[in-house]
Amino acid sequence: MKPLRLRNLTPQVALIPTWAIVIFAYIGTIVWTIRISFTNSGILPRYDFVGWKQYDRLFHSQRWSISVENLAIFGVLFIVGCLVLGFLLAVFLDQRIKGESWFRTIFLYPYAMSFIVTGLVWAWIMNPTLGIQRAVENWGWTSFTFNWLSRGDRAIYLLVIAGVWQAAGLVMAILLAGLRGVDEDIWKAARVDGIPAWRVYLSIVIPMLSSMFVTAIVLLAIAVVKLYDLVVAMTGGGPGISTEVPAKFVIDYLFNRQNIALATAAASVMFVAVLVVLGPWLYSQYFRKGRGAQ
């Protein structure tokens, strides 16, 4: 029999790669990024210390404020749009529908595809010269205009449409699983009392599904903060800088504009913002209930 100490060492050895990843790739990179954000680095990192200078520049940058504003517009409309459409789809699918699995498959397939694919297809459909606008004109409605893709004040809403198209099915799938778990007796009781179905959904079912709504919102919110591919594929941040987003701001300044100090300052702001919003929720979700500790 092997000595006890040696045997207990094996799991620690097995976790060495993970420890290395956690220490270097997660913690180390974050510390390093924050450190660079307090320097004057340009194309290469320098390790001087200039205080909050980069943050000051960041918050005075028009490109950054447009990015943040776009993220807010996209975030709110995208999350609300996905929740409303996804909930409606789930409710309507839950009415003993013929061909339910067909509908489910159709509603969820965009979620399997890349944001690049989604962005390129929608950019083509919305193409100001050959897309919807031209098709409707050819059908005889000659005054029809739909050139939002080339309009700085509207292009962001097209990103929302494409995003909702891709992710509404996810909400549908999550909520449908929840609806299937709703007790049949609730419906019987409601029928006996003569309560209309929409009322039951609003006052009883939605509160029952609240944890699933939270799950969906968190998943969508992660997608919002990471929003990058869709913008690159669909608008490239344009027209002008009207559809820039924070994630793209960081990548552009890191790799194309060679200002890594400003880029890391922006990344640090994103990091802190996510931490502030998600921290308490994550804590209550995984650690207060003792699930993390088993």
């Binding site: 420890w19 790739a25 390093w32 990024t33 660079i36 994630a247 890391t264 996510v274 993390g292």
Partner: peptide, 22 residues
């Protein structure tokens, strides 16, 4: 638990903060 907590948190943090040092 430390590993688990950090990985969990790491899943939510925008990739931008890891990229350059990586």
């Amino acid at each position: 638990n430390v590993i688990f907590a950090i990985l969990l948190l790491g899943a939510f943090i925008p990739y931008q903060v890891y990229l350059y040092p990586l």
